[in-house]
Design a protein around this nucleic acid. Structure first.
Length: 287
DNA sequence: CGCCAGGTATGAT
DNA sequence: ATCATACATGGC
């Protein structure tokens, strides 16, 4: 009998952690619930199904050593969320957001996938972003079997035309994706070099790509480079900041602003009425 | 129908 | 430097 059979239990201790909260809080676009309470997604070239069992995550599709090597960093299981929660709970507002979804963890996603995904996210909604990314992977990603596909690399997309991307129905963002792919594949924007830069210089470097402004740059850095001090400000976070933090986040939270943002973003999206009248004019408001 | 969505590039003050 | 507008697409 082999030490590890395909059905052997592959377990990872994960506390605090919640699959739904982590995969449906708006940070990633390629995880979906299956029919048995688990979540199925793609990590790199691996198709993974995760189930929660108390303090443990059960992983299908990987051996125990593979799960340790791949999922511990990806799921940020090496990060001390108990300490982060303790810090966050000292702030009354943030405490409410943490208590609402304490199982959120900010993932360490692939750099290029995060960059490309958040280019596609601009002026768009999460449901449609997921559809566009699914079509992108099906159309141009490497088949992984079982109807799953890897996220296409920049070198694959770099040789395509806007017409080639038409079936994605990503609208004006097609041009931006191609510019990103060409600059990354060509080395004009070197993601390894970006990873070595101080955070604000890294953001400036990413903004050399057409379609990458400060918000997309911060999302790429937070989710793809795990720069957890990055605070992406979108329409939801603009309302949160205006309503709850008119003077900005407290200093002691700044090193973890990106993680704080994730709890606040999710909380605000699930309680839209709390932020309806924020005083800050929305995009379409008339004076 | 009009408004909105994890914004940004562009051109006018 | 700051500000308004266009931009594709689809859900509501």
């Amino acid at each position: 009998m082999p030490v590890s059979t395909p059905t052997a239990a592959v377990r990872l201790r994960a506390v605090p952690f919640d699959l739904k909260e982590t995969f449906e809080c708006g940070q990633c676009f390629r995880w979906d619930p299956d029919s048995t309470g688990g979540y199925r997604g793609i990590v790199g070239r691996r198709v993974v199904t995760l189930r929660q069992d108390g303090d443990f995550l059960m992983a299908e599709g990987l051996t125990q050593p593979e799960a340790e090597a791949l999922l511990v960093p990806y799921l940020a299981l090496d990060e001390d969320y108990a300490a982060i929660h303790a810090l966050f709970r000292e702030n009354e507002t943030l405490a409410r957001a943490v208590d609402y979804a304490p199982g959120i963890r900010v993932l360490r996603q692939d750099r290029w996938e995060a960059l490309c995904s958040f280019i596609l996210s601009q002026n768009n909604n999460i449901k449609r972003i997921k559809g566009i990314i699914a079509r992108l992977c099906e159309s141009f990603g490497e088949p992984l079997g079982g109807g799953d596909y890897a996220f296409p690399g920049p070198e694959v997309l770099a040789s395509l035309s806007e017409e080639d991307l038409a079936p994605l129905r990503c609208g004006f963002r097609a041009r931006y994706v191609l510019d990103a792919a060409r600059k990354v594949a060509g080395g004009e924007v070197d993601l390894d070099a970006v990873a070595a830069l101080p955070t604000e210089e890294a953001a400036v470097a990413l903004q050399a790509i057409c379609g990458v402004g400060i918000k997309v740059a911060h999302c790429a850095l937070l989710y793809g480079f795990h720069r957890i001090e990055c605070l992406p400000v979108d329409v939801w976070m603009r309302r949160v900041m205006a309503t709850l933090y008119p003077n900005g986040l407290p200093q002691e939270l700044l090193p973890y602003a990106g993680i704080a943002q994730q709890y606040l973003f999710h909380y605000s999206r699930c309680h839209p009425s709390l932020f309806a009248g924020d005083g800050q004019p929305a995009k379409g408001d008339r004076p």
